[in-house]
Amino acid sequence: MSSQKRIAKELVECTASPPTGITVSLPNDSDVHKWHVVLDGPEGTAYAGGRFGLVVSLPIEYPFKAPAVTFATRIYHPNVTNDSLGSICLGLLKSENWKPSTRLLSVLEAVRNLLAEPQPDDPLEARIADEYRRDRREFDKNARSYVARYAKGPVKFDAPRGEPAAGEREGNGGDGGGASGGRA
C-alpha cells in the first residue's frame, strides 16, 4: 500500500524530532493508522499545565482523505464538543479543504494553535464560544477547572472518560464545573 511509506515517514518525523508540546506514540505497533498524541497545553493559556490526549485515526485512503482527530481528554473549548466524543472543528480537516500534501505535523500544530487561539466564530459549543467572547475571565476559570479535573496526571486514551459527577453536569444550567465556585 502506497500510504504505508508516507505514514512511516511522517511517524519518524514526529518521533525523531518532536515539535514542542507534542508527543506521538503508537498504541499498537502493528497498526500505523492509529496514533496517540499527547498535547501539552500551551503556556500562557488557560490550558497551560494540562496534558491532553488526542486520538488520530488515519483512513485507509490517507493521505487522500483527511485523518480524524478527536480529544480523548475532556476539554472546555469552543471548538471541541463538550462530551465523551471530543470532536474537533478544524477547517483543515474538512474534505473540501483537505490536501493530500498536508502533513500530520501541521494538523497537530493546528490543533495546538486552536488551544492558544480558540475560534469562537466557528464554534461547536455555542455556549462556550459565547462565554469566550463575552466573559473571558469566566471562560478561563472554567477552562482551568476542566484542566485541573481531567487533564492532570497520566493521559488515558481508551478508558471511558469520566462523565462529570451528578450535579456538576456543565451546560445551560451548571456553571461549568465544580471547581469554579460562585460566579463573580
Partner: peptide
C-alpha cells in the same frame, strides 16, 4: 466528492 470546477492543486495552501 463530485467536485469539478474547483479542484485545486494538491499542495497545502495552493
Amino acid at each position: 466528492e463530485g467536485e469539478a470546477a474547483r479542484i485545486q492543486c494538491p499542495s497545502e495552501g495552493c
